[in-house]
Nucleic acid binder design. Structure first.
Length: 886
RNA sequence: GCCCGGAUGGUGGAAUUGGUAGACACGCAGGACUUAAAAUCCUGUGGCCGUAAGGCCGUGCGGGUUCAAGUCCCGCUCCGGGCACCA
């Protein structure tokens, strides 16, 4: 009676498929719905790796558990299938990406089914399906037709914009321009990252901090191209506030907060010496205005050119042109060494009338604030460094709040920078009626900001780091924009009834000239002539991969709907997603973009919730063992042999150190789920994925561990399928019944808290105990199988049948535990002396402290540890511990 | 540099959130079954001393709080992740 997992798993997977066991109905009569979502995968050519089934198994366990608890569960799967690899393959071979994509999806689907994951495959979606991206395009049109009303703090249709008369007076073109400048989606020249090797524009986020493209590792350069951008910063405050109500890991919320990067400060106006221009700067420290000794403009600042005096023309022009060519990354790369040039112009400090020289330096970024700063070297590290390098004055205006006298001296003498709190000095101007001397930072900021506002020289201002989202790519394999550029320069969106705008077939997948998308090659598709002879060109950019994944969770709700993005009633029933599980690599981008779109759709009344994902959980990465020699060189796994728990190089015999590293082809330590299923079965794969460690932890895959859980399943099978072990009559032994009910409780709470590793351990303990006892009742065996069902469903189904049931275990009720079995009436107290455990003492749980004290004192072992002394105090914690202090 | 995590036997990890450190599993050692091997089953397994009973030490390092610290506080070291001239 061997555990024939291959046969068992094949049969039950077929059963589930034929009977549509996991089909989800929109059962409005059941108010207890549970929407549990996995981050859908990009179906790569190499198939699943063991990281995918980790999260999928976790959600599958919860989904199966929730079904057993009577919830209506929505647990779907789909494919984020647009992407570069299929397109690059097309360039090389001419195979249409849709063919490659379909093959990869089939392979992923086959692999996922082989794991026994209970998805409703009737709800499968694919971002590359025109029936799906029709609605991605539809959402883009909604974004295009939405503006953000700051008064109401929400997005509204552009049809509700009230156009000021002075704009109307200027004519239709001015009106159009005015409206366009308010749309959430806009078309503009953008300085973008260009990857020569991929011939693609990259989003800021796709460029790594070393200046390389995350997809191909080649260095990117700057390029100016017409691009589509989304005004996500308008939603910065909403995106920030929304985080507070979400049950997400604190770390992820913090990352989003940092990404949004809210900062409060003030804008300050500086007039140039000649009074001809006004320069606006942004500062979080308006209180340090008295310490400003110069001003810096970003090289791209519109006034930079104008302010350069004739004498400075040559050096400044050269500096600016060099800085413009440099990428931001090179600029930040050289962060340690500051550079800049003086313009020769001066501005007047509004608080004291002092003349401040204006410099141009690339440590000031045009993209943040106003692209100009007031420099306060005494109280800002960057300015301090710059002033030091170029010999600019440093004026201390804060007596620092530090205990270190020496440091205080250095700061007061402008030898050291102090950005912390303290009391102001040299910060008054009687003629202008301003004095903050003696005040602290918080008050200083308030007083100066108020003064600036009163004098019209500034105002409070909140800034965000979050930038407009570059939303177009020069690719073929992405969603086409539903847009037409007319020959008169105007743009219009495609009528909704004409959606989807489908990708045309192509023979040449290479990019067009001047960085155009390959779609530019499809001339028949691109060129449009209307019935009245108006000519235009379709937008040839396509949307980034984020687009399809931004809203896929909504389409699962009503995937086949041809008339609407989804049925409103269904949306109200299923949303929000109750639990969303995926990797932390999507902490910022995917999750922020999704939230943004969702909020826009909410403002437009399309969705009923303000946030899409109520609870988020990030699974940790699964790594693998790797080997390293003494010199620290990594050795491929196929060159390593294990002897007596140590590792040696097969050829040189050198002893190697076992380390933990990412799975990689070069280290030959990649684990393929197919192989694991072949050797140990899907249930063993699932169980090991969960047993390896806490779901959120980074942990190494160990083949030996798979063997361990496999033998647990095999023992379970042999024990329960062995009829001599099952007692059809009689009641269970009370010790075992106690353990059984304890285990039900433990497994249930561990599932709810997503601590699957300890749940499995509890089931192992139970089985060990059952086997030790030899015979158990049919009820005990049945409950064990029910507990196992969410984790190892194939085996559980099989054993359920062996125990005489005819239906699938998937629809059985989760066993309740009986509290009366959990009550103990005595406890074996650990008795310690001065905190050191010395012996154990069995006492009734009803024992009062004096009774316990008596018992301890009268125990013969106590005398030994008192060593003739008297106890100072006896600590008694009921049901926990007794500690005698001597 | 800043912001988050983390460090427990030979290994992966448990520890009711301040109360018996090392559950469960792997590995290893010994034994049973076997002609033999695999599989399976049983026993042992943190380190040191001891035949044993037992004792001492022990959760990255150094302090502290407490009757009691893996858990809380202060100061470090190392590892992982994120951000990085954001004024």
């Amino acid at each position: 009676m061997d555990y024939n997992f291959k046969d068992i798993e094949r049969r039950w997977q077929e059963y589930w498929e034929v009977n549509k066991t996991f089909k989800t109905e929109d059962d409005y009569s059941n108010p207890r719905k549970y929407y549990i979502l996995d981050m859908f995968p990009y179906p790569s050519g190499s198939g699943l790796h063991v990281g995918h089934p980790e999260g999928y198994t976790a959600t599958d366990i919860i989904a199966r558990y929730k079904r057993m608890k009577g919830y209506n569960v929505l647990h779907p799967m789909g494919w984020d299938a647009f992407g570069l690899p299929a397109e690059q393959y097309a360039m090389k071979t001419g195979t249409h990406p849709s063919i490659t994509t379909a093959e990869n999806c089939s392979n992923f689907r086959r692999q996922i089914k082989a794991i026994g994951l209970g998805y409703d495959w009737d709800r499968e979606i694919n971002t590359t399906d025109p029936a799906y991206y029709k609605w991605t395009q539809w959402i883009f049109i909604q974004l295009y037709n939405t503006w953000f009303d700051h008064n109401e703090n929400r997005g509204r249709p552009v049809s509700e914009l009230s156009i000021p008369e002075e704009i109307t007076a200027k004519g239709a073109a001015a009106v159009q321009e005015w409206i366009d400048s308010r749309r959430l989606a806009y078309y503009d020249d953008a300085s973008v990252w260009w990857c020569k090797s991929c011939a693609i524009v990259c989003a800021n986020e796709e460029v790594l901090s070393d200046g390389t493209h995350e997809k191909c590792d080649n260095t990117v350069i700057r390029k100016n191209l017409k691009q589509w951008l989304l005004r996500i910063p308008l939603y910065a405050e909403r995106l920030l506030e929304g985080l507070d109500s979400l049950d997400w890991p604190e770390g992820i919320k913090e990352m989003q907060r940092n990404w949004i990067g809210r900062s409060e400060g003030a804008e300050v106006l500086f007039e140039t010496e000649d009074g001809k221009d006004t320069i606006k700067v942004y500062t979080t420290r308006p209180d340090t205005l008295f310490g400003a000794t110069y001003m810096v403009l970003a090289p791209e600042h519109p006034l930079a050119e104008r302010l350069i005096t004739p004498g400075m023309r040559e050096s400044a022009a050269e500096y600016i042109s060099k800085a413009m060519v440099k990428s931001d990354l090179v600029r930040t790369d050289l962060a340690r060494e500051k550079s800049g040039v003086p313009t020769g112009s001066f501005v007047i400090n509004p608080v004291n009338g002092k003349r401040l020289p204006v410099w141009i330096a690339d440590y000031v970024l045009m993209g943040y604030g106003t692209g100009a700063i007031m420099a306060v070297p005494a109280h800002d590290e960057r300015d301090f460094e710059f002033a030091g390098k170029f010999g600019l004055p440093v004026e201390c205006i804060i007596d620092p709040a530090t205990d270190c006298q020496e440091q205080r001296e250095r700061v007061l003498n402008a030898k050291e920078c102090w950005s912390g709190d303290g009391h102001y000095i040299n910060s008054s101007d009687s003629t202008r009626g301003i004095d903050i001397n003696g005040l602290g930072k918080a008050e200083g900021i308030e007083v100066i900001t108020r003064w600036l506002t009163e004098k019209g020289a500034g105002s409070p201002k909140t800034n965000y780091k979050l930038r407009d989202w570059l939303f177009s790519r020069q690719r073929y394999w992405g969603e086409p924009f539903p847009l037409i550029h007319w020959e008169d320069g105007t743009i219009s969106v495609v009528d909704e009834e004409d959606l989807p705008v489908e990708l045309p077939p192509l023979t040449n997948y290479h990019p067009g000239e001047k960085g155009e998308s390959p779609l530019a090659n499809a001339e028949e598709w691109v060129n449009i002539t209307t019935a009245d002879g108006r000519r235009g060109r379709r937008e040839t950019n396509t949307m980034p991969q984020w687009a399809g994944s931004c809203w896929y969770y909504l389409r699962y709700i009503d995937p086949g709907n041809e008339n609407a993005i989804f049925d409103q009633r269904k949306e109200r029933y299923w949303m929000p997603v109750d639990l969303y599980v995926g990797g932390a690599e999507h902490a910022v981008l995917h999750l922020l973009y999704s939230r943004f779109w969702h909020k826009v759709l909410y403002d437009l009344g399309v969705v009923s919730t303000d946030e899409p994902f109520k609870k988020l959980f990030n699974q940790g990465m699964i790594l693998a063992f790797a080997y390293e020699n003494r010199a620290g060189a990594k050795i491929a796994s196929d060159l390593v042999e294990e002897r007596e728990g140590k590792f040696y190089h097969k050829e040189s015999g050198e002893e190697l150190k076992q380390i933990v590293a990412k799975m990689s082809k070069s280290l030959k330590n990649v684990i393929n789920p197919d192989d694991v299923i072949e050797r140990y079965g899907a249930d063993s794969l699932r169980l090991y994925e969960m047993f390896i460690g806490p779901l959120e932890a980074t942990k190494p895959w160990d083949e030996k561990g798979v063997k361990g859980v496999h033998s647990f399943l095999a023992r379970g099978y042999r024990f329960i399928a062995g009829s001599e072990n099952i007692n059809n009559n009689g009641t269970e032994n009370s010790e075992l019944a106690k353990l059984l009910h304890k285990t039900i409780k433990k497994v249930e709470s561990d599932i709810v808290e997503m601590r699957f590793n300890t749940a499995i351990s509890a089931m192992m303990i139970l089985l060990n105990s059952m086997m030790k006892q030899g015979t158990v009742t049919r009820e005990t065996a049945s409950i064990f199988v029910l507990l196992l069902a969410p984790f190892a469903p194939h085996l559980a189904e099989e054993l359920w049948r062996v125990l005489g049931n005819n239906n699938t275990i998937s629809n059985e009720e989760w066993p309740p535990y009986d509290e009366s079995y959990l009550k103990e009436d005595s406890f074996e107290y650990p008795v310690s002396f001065n905190g050191k455990l010395r012996f154990r003492l069995e006492l009734p749980l009803s024992a009062t402290p004096p009774e316990a004290e008596n018992e301890v004192m009268s125990d013969e072992r106590t005398a030994r540890w008192l060593k003739g002394g008297k106890p100072k105090k006896i600590v008694f914690v009921k049901g926990r511990i007794i500690n005698v202090v001597v």
